[in-house]
Design a protein around this nucleic acid. Structure first.
Lengths: 188, 188
DNA sequence: CCTATTATCGACACGCGTGTCGATTCTATT
DNA sequence: AATAGAATCGACACGCGTGTCGATAATAGG
């Protein structure tokens, strides 16, 4: 008599993901979530006390899913160039399909909640990339670059790209150019 | 009997600039502007029909002020490296003092109004940078880089930087690293 | 089938921002 | 000083989102 709760919760999260990806964080109201899940205000509120709570649950879910496990691949001994290519391909995909990505919502959410979540997400991204580059340098696949600088370059150009690709019609080759630039930095 | 209008309009714009810089676009209400300008709703509405209108006036004002006139400097024959340094210094300044910058507000505004303003601003930024790099290559000051790629790199890493510097405590040297990277790309 | 518990409903009161409009105050001009 | 027109005021009605709460429906376990 206790499992239906989890089921509904999952339904709410799935539906909300689409809303947040499409509209950003602040633009999503509890009313929107009610409509899309065909629930009433009361029913919904008994699961989540507000959109922030839903979004946090989503963030947690995402950060656990961990799309590309760089550390794991390193342990497996996958070549650094291969990991790099996967990671960059993932970036490209997100830029090509911004409507499936929470990036804008995360940004808005981060602005209003100076929560640790963002700092944590960022630190983990930095650590992953740093680990990959160190690894590539060690195996001799990558040039002996300044790791810190390269990580900053990758992360922030990527952030800029995915934020603005939503706003400005961007030439198709623009993300490719930046990805190529990153590759040129790393691969001799 | 007709000039007080312009005066008040200027006062409203000045005050609003601070609000938008501090809070972004959507977070600023007509009430806020009333409070900060010590006007009533009616008075304010007789000047601007809404925050969007105020913001557009600000954008226009800014795009006319034209902080660094790259084309002008090129015509004057200023060395490309010097122009580059000024432009990058300006970027650095904006990242160091995000509270004086409209960047977030512009981003928010752009999201809700798929207006030409953004596309125009972006195109002009692209053109300026492209002109500068072409110029530097021609005078032999810059390496013979792929202009398009370098412009993308500069603009988007800069965008990423200034958006996220508001959210995440950023190491002081991070913007310097990116600026140095850009210089390394261009200057032999 | 019965019942205790859980899940869901939808009306309610509230806060906040919007845009309007008739009344009022200023002010340049004569 | 008188006055017409401009500038400003602030109360009003409205829409929208929020969070609550007592009532109702659904369901697992006996």
């Amino acid at each position: 008599m206790r499992f239906k709760r989890e089921l509904t919760r999952g339904r709410i999260l799935d539906a909300s993901y689409k809303l947040f990806a499409a509209k950003g964080f602040k633009q999503v109201t509890m009313k929107d979530v009610c409509d899309i899940t065909h629930m009433s205000r009361g029913g919904l509120y008994s699961h989540f006390p507000g959109t922030a709570s839903i979004f946090e649950a989503l963030l947690q879910q995402i950060s656990q899913e961990n799309f590309l496990d760089i550390e794991g691949e390193i342990d497996k001994g996958t070549p650094a160039t291969e990991i790099l290519n996967s990671a960059l391909a993932q970036m490209q995909k997100e830029i090509d399909h911004p409507e499936d990505s929470l990036s804008i919502a995360i940004f808005e959410y981060a602005q209003m909640n100076e929560s640790e979540v963002m700092i944590d997400l960022n630190r983990r991204a930095v650590d992953k990339w740093a680990a990959l580059i160190h690894y590539g340098i060690k195996t001799g696949e990558f040039k002996n670059v300044d790791v810190d600088e390269t990580v900053s370059l990758i992360l922030y150009s990527y952030q800029g790209l995915r934020m603005w690709s939503r706003i400005i019609p961007m030439k198709k080759k623009t993300p490719e150019q930046i990805i190529n630039h990153i590759k040129k930095q790393l691969i001799p």
